[in-house]
Design a protein around this nucleic acid. Structure first.
Lengths: 215, 215
DNA sequence: CCGAATCCGCAGTGATACTG
DNA sequence: CAGTATCACTGCGGATTCGG
């Protein structure tokens, strides 16, 4: 496949040639959270045709951004992971996401929130300065997904989908709202979430993750 | 024009909806350097169809990223400038450009380097730590363009196309090479450029702008 | 000259169906 | 599970044209 070029010897133009096509950066975003298999990515990117997914994965693989791996014994199958080059996109993706978050309005009809997008949003807004000296872990239970976050010595050690053995479990009651970042923080901030464990850590969570860039 | 959506309530997805289409970020990059008129942008983005430029400008204007202004008396005509929202894209564009610069290989046949792309590259690689305490200014004369850079008290005060009253004028001799960042720094680093003014500032320039992220 | 609008051919995309 | 195959459609690339 002949790759379209911009004809400029420029870092930004090169980046856009490699990851500027539709869906490409969203695939990288999801892979930043954890390695995924093909069908995982299908579910994490609703509304995107499967042929586009396979085309993007091939291009990203050729560009040295994504690697195909055979998953270990328990599950088998193909796992897509980021190369080091791919992982180095994280600062750029966080910067773009931070800007886009400030432009986010109300959820539009049909919008979804995936575990991956919410994870990356929390990584985006994590306030390292507010976290100095903090060591704690949380599990966030939303109606359709569970996330965990671990902060050790002020650094974001782990955050992603799935449960964990956490100091505080925050359960957001089932409601008809989208599990968006805004709704999540509002629910916790207003004390409407159920807390199991060290309840005082709820305020800490809001302090570390609740300073959005204008959301 | 119906805007295609990603169907995710996510900062990155929103950003890509607004500035993810082809040429959009390159237009913003050029406008980050300075306001431009329509035909300036045409020349600064060779190889892009004119209808795409006018379509992008309209979309960016609708999105609140770009503003049309009537240029002041001397020249008249329409000037396109960034809004505050548009200027806030700079960190994301620098981050993407930094990543892409590390993926830049040799210039391909037909590649061009514009004053805008070189300016943004220099902004990208500026090493604020190396610049602590530095106050100086340079004018860089390349065969087809002239740039200026001003560092005041360790901060990048001004950099862009055009001449200036500089402490040191660096003239790169005419040769058959592309005026790419790599060739520029190589020429200066090897002492092949002509220096007029405080020659000792050539080494300072290389120190502040010569630490690429892997170019 | 500036600032576009228009037309056409084609590549990339979206949606659905199908296969190893 | 992990992709191809097919096909309609839209946006892009390229050239030309048009009104201040």
């Amino acid at each position: 496949m002949k790759r379209r070029q911009f004809g400029q010897h420029c870092g930004l133009a090169r980046a856009l040639e490699l990851v500027g096509e539709r869906w490409a950066l969203l695939i990288v975003r999801d892979l930043l959270v954890r390695p995924r298999r093909y069908t995982d990515l299908q579910h994490a990117l609703p509304g995107r045709p499967t042929n586009v997914l396979s085309a993007r994965l091939k291009e990203l693989e050729r560009a040295g951004i994504v690697e195909r791996q055979i998953a270990p014994a328990p599950q088998r199958g193909v796992l897509y992971t980021l190369t080091d080059t791919g992982r180095e996109l994280e600062p750029a993706i966080l910067a773009l996401g931070r800007w886009g978050a400030a432009q986010l309005g109300k959820p539009r009809p049909g919008d979804t929130v995936t575990a991956e997008s919410l994870t990356m949003t929390l990584r985006t807004v994590f306030d390292a300065e507010a976290a100095i000296g903090v060591t704690a872990s949380w599990e966030i239970r939303l109606p359709d997904m569970v996330l965990h976050a671990v902060v050790a010595n002020g650094a974001l050690a782990d955050i992603g989908p799935g449960p964990s053995d956490a100091d505080l479990v925050i359960t957001v009651p089932t409601n008809d709202q989208l599990p968006s970042y805004g709704n999540l923080m509002r629910t916790i901030g207003c004390g409407l979430a159920e807390l199991t464990g060290q309840a005082a850590l709820a305020d800490v969570f809001v302090r570390l993750f609740g300073k959005p860039p204008g959301i």
